[in-house]
């Protein structure tokens, strides 16, 4: 029994809920794209993500909704906010820096036509009705529950699961390396390179690092 399904005469509450959350999702998305302050953009993205989470719940998928809230709203947006706060006020530059001015109207037109086309296709096509009886997994877990997702993930999709975890690990290492700055980065990289202890490698790296350092100082 869907907890959100209760009976109101006239418009079913589901339709109302869908209308509400889709509206917040669209408004949030529009604000992300349009706000001149990146901070506002990030906050609006939060609206968008939470609305999507609610829509996932309406689709009988509590685990994905939970993950949406935890990963996107909890982690990704917070990370964005951290970075924006760290970098300070960086609005877009004066208009004289804009290149290819004709690009913007074309892009707007393109996005509009894309939206029209896709929505038109969706309306025109004949999707099957959603199944009424939600199936259970082999072990008897209910559809969309954490147990059911876990079972499927660790049986049919175990390879995808492992690869995803490797990707996450690589991304974490990449983030650390990219985050290192200046001297610390230089030292860390040199230690990484020294595993072979090839003198020549070290020497050439030292030279490259020194040159990079010089360039940085010239630029700043």
């Amino acid at each position: 029994m869907n907890p959100l399904e209760f009976d109101i005469p006239g418009a079913p509450v589901e339709v109302l809920l869908f209308a509400m959350f889709s509206l917040t999702a669209i408004v949030g998305a529009l604000r992300v794209v349009m706000a001149s302050d990146p901070f506002h953009s990030a906050l609006s993205l939060l609206f968008n993500f939470v609305s999507l989470g609610a829509l996932y719940l309406m689709l009988d998928q509590p685990f994905v909704a939970l993950a949406q809230i935890l990963v996107y709203a909890g982690a990704v947006v917070v990370l964005f906010l951290f970075v924006i706060a760290y970098l300070g006020d960086r609005r877009e530059l004066a208009t004289d820096a804009i290149r290819l001015r004709w690009l913007r109207p074309i892009a707007a037109l393109l996005a509009l036509s894309l939206a029209t086309l896709l929505v038109g296709v969706v309306i025109a096509s004949n999707f099957p009705n959603a199944v009424q009886e939600l199936p259970e997994t082999g072990a008897g877990f209910s559809f969309g529950s954490a147990q059911a997702i876990g079972e499927v993930f660790l049986t049919d999709y175990v390879l995808a699961f492992e690869i995803t975890s490797v990707v996450l690990l690589v991304a974490a290492i990449g983030g650390i390396i990219l985050g290192l700055t200046g001297r610390a980065r230089h030292e860390r990289m040199r230690k990484l390179m020294q595993t072979r202890s090839a003198d020549q490698q070290k020497k050439s790296y030292d030279q490259a690092a020194a040159a990079a350092h010089r360039d940085r100082e010239l630029n700043s």
């Binding site: 290149r99 290819l100 690009l103 074309i106 892009a107 393109l110 996005a111 036509s113 894309l114 086309l117 896709l118 296709v121």
Partner: peptide, 24 residues
């Protein structure tokens, strides 16, 4: 190849649009 990322993205989007139109 002018280095403007938006320009490249426009190309990708155009191609995507073209594929959608072709499908239709």
């Amino acid at each position: 190849q002018n280095g403007v990322v938006r320009f490249y993205a426009l190309g990708t989007a155009l191609a995507f649009l073209a594929v959608v139109v072709a499908f239709i």
